[in-house]
Design a protein around this nucleic acid. Structure first.
Lengths: 120, 120
DNA sequence: CTGATACTGAACCATATGGTTCAGTATGCT
DNA sequence: AGCATACTGAACCATATGGTTCAGTATCAG
């Protein structure tokens, strides 16, 4: 069984809980980019974007490398496998529960039909 | 193509970014529970647990129903499908990128071998 | 009616978040 | 050298978060 690391999940779900940071991940999915480029895309200050990048780095979703004046940002090293696994596991329990509920509802409807439709 | 609703993703990723709330979802995956029961499991006050439940409700991950004095909490109506889809989509781009990187590395190694191993 | 139970809401607290501005430092260009 | 570029760090701000306590309200049990 997979063991989820609470702190890791905290950090990456928190990182994903912001539209700007999700946008950064999308942009980096297409091509690497500098802090300046990312800041321009999202119309915020360099300093503001730097902070987002730090959050993404701490979550392990982005790596950066400074060459000369420019810090280049890329995806990785984590690939959200753990988060995907957590969500999928939950979804399975979820759906099992909803299926069970469906059965109950179906059962009720069947009985209701057998007793004739209820008056309004 | 799926359209992701930024506000929905914000709310549910934020809801998932806390170990206590993830624990609540797990517990509710096994059986419905009252606020009191949840608060006891996680050793926090009733008021504190109420707030977590409100967050999960706003994210659509939990529904509650108050009968008499007791508010019963259950999973639903959302089942994290959108979140799973977002993560999976990202993972695909991710992995495509890493595969491409692998190719480059493999290519470099091949050339290196062809030119004889580099001195340390 | 009385007391216990289960929650609710307001107020407060410390810390985090998402943003800014301003003042650097380090690097590249001419 | 001298200027522009790219980032960095400190300080500040408003709001949100995760928790608490305290003072209710509503319901159930006897």
């Amino acid at each position: 069984m997979v063991q989820y690391q609470a702190a890791d999940l905290d950090a990456s779900f928190a990182a994903l809980a912001d539209a700007t940071r999700r946008g950064v991940l999308e942009q980096l999915g297409r091509a690497e980019a500098s802090i300046t480029e990312l800041a321009e895309t999202f119309r915020i200050t360099l300093t503001g974007m730097k902070k987002h990048v730090v959050v993404l780095e701490r979550a392990g979703l982005v790596t950066t490398e400074k060459i000369g004046r420019v810090r280049t940002c890329r995806l990785g090293p984590r690939d959200l496998e753990e988060e995907a696994a957590w969500i999928e596991h939950r979804r399975q329990l979820w759906n099992a529960r909803f299926d069970a509920l469906d059965d109950v509802v179906r059962d009720l409807k069947r009985k209701e039909t057998a007793n004739g439709p209820k008056k309004r």
